[in-house]
Design a protein around this nucleic acid. Structure first.
Lengths: 220, 220
DNA sequence: CTCCGTTTGTTGAAAATTCAACAGACTTAT
DNA sequence: ATAAGTCTGTTGAATTTTCAACAAACGGAG
């Protein structure tokens, strides 16, 4: 576990928990680590929602397929971020989404019931973990509000500009990389890929944005 | 406060808290009650995100206006439900949505910092409240997943059927009332009102649904 | 370096959504 | 009961998105 400590220190779930206690605590929680190759399914829709996931290395996406094969990308998952905690905490029977690796990755899985219910060892970390979970869930909630703000726009152009503005703000710069290729961005914005490409071209021609691959710049 | 106890008992925030303790606790938390007439703004976008709201009577909606006056309805708020807890818990500076009364209503406001940080009286309820908040935020998270599942559909027909199916499941019956008029439903589904009306008519003509005002039936 | 598979941009046609306008049904207030 | 105002369904035209197909650009493997 030692080699993951640097990542775990940045994980919202372990905020205000001393690094020296972390290893012991992970043992107590029964944390386990698994590896996946690119494109592999980490958690499949319908799986029991027992585990909180933490991305240790690599990246993944939260996706949902509808019955006609249309992919919707709910969100990307980067190193040190958590996933599936809402399903585990709300104690739903099955996960309604699929988690797919976009790079080779390692993830940590923690059985949520070990966090929610005091363990026999009485480690005393539970209160802090529950507080951290609460904060994390609140932050995820706000992320959904932002996603809805973006995707509730009625046109491809507005969705795209809205998304790029958010990314620029997040990066603190008018030049920034996005974690999606064109098809993925279309599936995130809930629009047609070719229409999205056309819209990007139009915005370039109008001098509003510039882009090369995944690097965008907002010119205004 | 006594007259609100029946409502508060059903509020997820106070689960597993003895009713006999509730009144004292509300005093300790500095809970206050406010009333609003239909159509009034309960919390305006940009307000500081200090308070957790609880709907005591009546109903409201969480809405967001974009810069061209398009209304997006994020969610309805019914009696005993909480609202704005995510913004308060995540300690963002300003609320990014507007809460508008859809009926005359009474709401309870609790300063979130009183829940998050132990008070001088050491009431001891904080741990349970934080646990309840965590559960509540997880549930809200799942609600967002459902809303995204609905609105990520590409056509008006699919959004509508997806929404109605969810409502039927929630009501546990193929006949159910929805909390929106046509314009509100359109703003919730992120589609055009006249297109929505046309789609409802088509589904009736095809014998797939039946409806009279806000009461729908799925025939299948 | 070349080949092969994937990603991206472009196009035009088909389909769907949006928009504006209106008439009838329904509600509310007087 | 009447009148004024709101909500709903319908229409057709304008706009936008989707879809399918293809070629150019790109990237990785051998």
């Amino acid at each position: 576990m030692e080699k993951y400590l640097k990542v775990l220190r940045n994980c919202s779930l372990f905020r205000n928990i001393e690094e020296s206690h972390l290893t012991k605590m992970l043992t107590c929680l029964g944390a386990k680590v698994e590896s996946f190759d690119k494109k592999y399914t980490i958690i499949a829709e319908g799986n029991p929602a027992k585990y909180i996931g933490i991305m240790l290395s690599g990246s993944a996406q939260i996706i949902r397929m509808d019955y006609f094969g249309n992919r919707n990308i709910v969100s990307g998952i980067e190193v040190s971020e958590t996933f599936c905690e809402a399903f585990a905490c709300a104690e739903v029977k099955a996960v309604p989404v699929t988690i797919v690796a976009t790079e080779p990755c390692e993830i940590m899985l923690i059985d949520c019931s070990h966090i929610l219910h005091t363990c026999s060892n009485n480690c005393g970390f539970h209160q802090q973990l529950i507080f951290n979970l609460m904060k994390d869930l609140a932050t995820k909630n706000i992320m959904f509000h932002q996603k809805i703000e973006i995707t509730s726009k009625r046109s491809t152009r507005e969705k795209l500009l809205s998304y790029l503005t958010f990314q620029a703000k997040k990066a603190g710069s008018n030049v920034f990389d996005i974690p999606f290729d064109r098809q993925e961005l279309a599936d995130y914005l809930e629009v047609d890929r070719s229409g999205l490409s056309a819209e990007i071209s139009k915005l370039r021609a109008e001098g509003i944005i510039e882009c090369r691959k995944n690097r965008f710049e907002i010119l205004y």
